[in-house]
Design a protein around this nucleic acid. Structure first.
Lengths: 161, 161
DNA sequence: TTTGGTGCAAACCGTTTGCATCGCT
DNA sequence: AGCGATGCAAACGGTTTGCACCAAA
């Protein structure tokens, strides 16, 4: 079920249409191309990369439409981002093996430890990709504080805690 | 061994001094304060947060010294960053559970799958932090391509693949 | 006509860099 | 004196936003 698998792409386009119908989103030419571009690769491209690719077929698209579309797709749960969404780099002086809990709304990051998770083994296929420096678990969720005060109307995206 | 544990802070300061001695780094007042600030918390602050904290005790520090110091500490392996280092947000249309391999040099991201890792359980303590949306493994390493051509002299930090 | 979506350009913000100065050895 | 570290200010690059225009219902 790799993203390159054409049947997987079809499935995702189906899903997109279903969600669009359910939520009353307009599936404009631009939106369709942007989603298709992202769904057809497993390289996890940046907005700019998607922009340049879509631009080839559709010279009038603008970068900000790509951004708006991507976040819109993200908001309705059709796509995700890689790693914690954040506005700034976060640093870590804890060199012992540990794992992270990340709040998807406010960006809070907390360490936790687990011998069980420390012992996890990555599959052989990963070793073919390159060397391994470390492996850690990233748990995403809504932190206790953010559960109290429900999401703000607009950008539910990042804020330093 | 939480970062708030004062004995842990001491241990880290020891380590800092040892590495500084070994590598001939100058431990200026600024550098010491910046490291201390980071090592004393487990909030994984941004450069700006560290800057504001250090500034209280040392009103003349500048934000760029904080950045330079943090990356210097990072380059000698004394601190790390949370999540993949990247210059731009990367998007992902793969909603099935999967995991990521991230190259620490060029920023390449690749999916991989593992039933074993899909089944991992997070410790109870994490559930106290908030709700859980998903849990995935992030493996960091140097990808095959980057191993061939050794690191560039300057910033070994990010570039879109 | 009304409601969104889009494109453009300017604003924004985190981060980096060039350069002159400072402080330690 | 010599040399790396620092501070300042300006540049940079990714991202967002205000606004006018356009297209579909």
């Amino acid at each position: 079920m790799s993203p390159r698998d054409p049947s997987s792409l079809d499935k995702r386009l189906e899903h997109l249409k279903a969600v669009a119908r359910a939520k009353g989103l307009k599936l404009t030419h631009q939106r369709l191309e942007i989603f298709r571009e992202l769904a057809a690769t497993d390289e996890h491209p940046s907005a700019d990369k998607i922009f340049r690719a879509v631009q080839r077929r559709m010279p009038t698209v603008s970068l900000d439409t790509v951004y708006r579309t991507l976040w819109m797709l993200h908001d309705v749960g059709l796509i995700t981002t890689v790693g914690p969404e954040r506005e700034a780099v976060r640093f870590d002086a804890n060199l012992d093996q540990h794992h992270h809990y990340v709040c998807v709304q406010c960006g809070l990051v907390r360490d936790f430890e687990s011998n069980e998770l420390n012992a996890l083994r990555v599959p052989a296929s990963v070793h073919r990709l390159g060397s391994i420096v470390n492996a850690q678990v990233e748990v995403r969720g809504l932190c206790a504080k953010c559960q109290e005060r429900p999401a703000r109307g607009k950008k539910a995206r990042s804020v330093s805690p």
